[in-house]
Nucleic acid binder design. Sequence first.
RNA 1: GUGGUUAUAGCUCAGCUGGUUAGAGCAUCAGAUUGUGGUUCUGAGGGUCGCCGGUUCGAACCCGGUUAGCCACCCCA
Length: 455
Amino acid sequence: MAKPSLPQGTRDFGPDVVRKRNYILNTIKNVFELYGFLPLETPAMENLDTLMGKYGEEGDKLIFKILNNGLDNPDKEKQIREDFEKVLQGKNTKGITERALKYDLTIPFARYVAMNHSQLTFPFKRYQVQPVWRADRPQKGRYREFYQCDADVVGSNALLNEVELASIYHEVFSRLKLDGYELRINHRKILTALAETCGGADKMMDITIAIDKLDKIGIDKVKEELIQRGLTADQVNIIEKYLNITGTNDEILVSLSEIIGNSENGKKGIEQVSFILANLQSQTLNLKLDPTLARGLNYYTGIIFEAKAPDIVKMGSIGGGGRYDDLTGLFGVPNIPGVGISFGVDRIYDVMEELNLFPPDVHVGTQVLFFNLGEAESKKSFELMQQLRHRGIRSELYHETAKFDKQFKYAEKKNIPYIIIIGEKELTDNTCTIKNLASGDQQSVSAASLLNHSF
RNA sequence: GUGGUUAUAGCUCAGCUGGUUAGAGCAUCAGAUUGUGGUUCUGAGGGUCGCCGGUUCGAACCCGGUUAGCCACCCCA
């Protein structure tokens, strides 16, 4: 028999890891609930045409497609061979793949809203925590199956939503002690204005892809890439001026106005960014206006967010989001604007692991282990244990009578902080011995007062 | 999708220009120790050297392929 293995880019999560992941997931969910968001789940798979064309050309390639069943049906052989020819030419066809694993949570959410808009109360605020799949090549911080935690508000144009979402980032990262995070914001209209000002509105994609790499490859390489992408030297000069903008958020706003303030889009973008900055000033210090931020997903139309891990861990983005004017329009229901954010749990996990930010008590599962020292003794232990469990104390009884040594080691390995000994002596006295394993302190208490003991 | 790099015990890794029966530490199990763990000592088990093929009298080592990890590019959480 072949050795068992996992598909590329996927992982098992053992008990310790699940505990730590749950710590992150619960923190995020609690904050979402605190801000009035409602839970939603959608299927692992979607119809392929729900997903295709929503994430750009590159995104389409990364969608995991599911092979149809019944392709070996001899009655359909001719049709299937024809369809397969199309696949060989790089086209998709319903005859071969009709479904795909979901690529993110935003598009399935838009599909859900489009299907249910008549029953929803707007603005509809939903959060969603589920795995998504990407047929990307794995590397550090990049998996083929990973979790996203999204919160979106649809049916409202109010910028207050952006303010709320930014506050959620701050609240979650503060609770996780990820204080070194940085939330960068920019506005799609500011980028559009830049493209217009350079006389190349149609070059928007080329410009954003190139300038997004600034802090990675440096100004010279970005200029090189811009020229390669067909921009003139004059245009590149304007972009260079734009990229050289530095300073405080207020200073950046002033500089932006100088370059793109005459454009309608530029004005609008600057105005909206100013509003958000002004409303958050008192609450978060980690908010940074970054004109070079240009998130890839092409459905964003307004504010864009990106949460960056503390610089020392070299992880990059641990969350992102933005405003999209008309996502449900893609599914035939226009005029429902939305804005949302996403947390990348798997990356947050890696960052917290690297920075040692998990609280030590994440690992405490069972609080109390009852030693098993004989038949009559374990019967009594079981009785008391059930009473402790009624009180909500997580307890277990060692599964068989064994030497002290063994039972101690079991408690240690499972990080159980307290053990309770009920042996021959305790049985006759109707007492029990409670021992704190970390300190070594132990005390004898009556069976009755055990139930009021605090662990 | 492109390129680089790595794969030896449960884990971390040694293993010389290709040469008998592939090693260490940690972990596991047993004993020293039948009501008090973490320390120490003694002993034991555990490997088709990722997988498939080739070169060779002989391969963990050289060559080809393949799978997986890591890294870079593309893109992204």
